[in-house]
């Protein structure tokens, strides 16, 4: 008998979900704007607040433009055995998640335990407040090939194919996450990419567009 295996995703019961949603709403509407303002007035790199089951951590993006997540260089640095592996290894992947989870100006992670998954899910569907830029990410592990609509300046709609990632000969579409204008492509054609890797920037026409 297999000693281990996958277990199905757990479905939280309705009341738990409701409480969860209320928690997320309070976070995004009340707590976050206040925290972002607070962080702006300090020279702190990071700020964390705990309340009940939730904790929110804001981190100033270091040296990268807001909205950018993982880049090819991250992987290269992780390829050095012993370099980031032991002491600082933890900071690197966490940084990725922070940046990717929000895509916004502040880099926000929120959640505890099972709740974090639903928070991330929400973040992927609706661009967070204050966002002016989005990123099309890789749908799979494979070789990236930008398409004709990946040219900088092209106006695209959410769901448009911007290119493909080739998985064992089967191309999978890289989709525009939002309506907007194609910005820079972060990965060269023919390069290997991993699942969820940032590939193509999309500039939103106006910040208000992001909220709709």
């Amino acid at each position: 008998m297999p000693d281990t295996g996958p277990r199905g995703d757990r479905t939280a019961d309705a009341s738990f979900r409701e409480a969860d949603h209320a928690g997320i709403a309070r976070l995004t509407e009340e707590l976050l704007p206040a925290l972002i303002a607070k962080l702006g007035t300090t020279h702190l790199g990071e700020l964390e607040v705990r309340e009940g089951d939730w904790h929110v951590r804001l981190r100033r993006p270091f040296g990268t433009a807001p909205g950018e997540g993982r880049r090819a260089s991250d992987k290269a640095s992780r390829s050095q055995p012993g370099h980031e592996g032991h002491g600082h290894g933890r900071a690197a992947p966490e940084g990725h998640r922070a940046a990717r989870g929000s895509g916004g100006a502040s880099g926000v992670t929120a959640g505890t335990g099972a709740a974090s998954a639903s928070t991330n899910g929400t973040g992927a569907d609706e661009p967070p407040v204050g966002r002016s830029r989005a990123v099309a990410t890789s749908p799979a592990v494979g070789i990236f090939q930008p398409g004709s609509r990946a040219a900088s300046g092209t106006r695209v709609r959410a769901g448009d194919s911007l290119g493909t990632v080739n998985v064992l000969g089967v191309p999978q579409d890289v989709l525009a996450p939002v309506d907007g204008i194609v910005g820079s492509t972060l990965v060269e054609a023919g390069m290997a990419v991993e699942y969820g890797q940032d590939l193509i920037r999309i500039e939103l026409a106006t910040p208000t567009e992001a909220r709709s």
């Binding site: 992987k75 992780r78 592996g85 998954a117 799979a140 592990v141 064992l168 991993e194 699942y195 969820g196």
Partner: peptide, 29 residues
């Protein structure tokens, strides 16, 4: 293991059917 590996590669979402159980994702990786 991700932190200690010589290299680590993300192959899919949390759902194992699309990551650890996906033969194309593993082989492509």
């Amino acid at each position: 293991p991700v932190q200690l590996a010589d290299e680590a590669i993300c192959i899919g979402p949390a759902d194992a059917r699309r990551s650890y159980l996906s033969a194309p994702a593993v082989i492509s990786a």
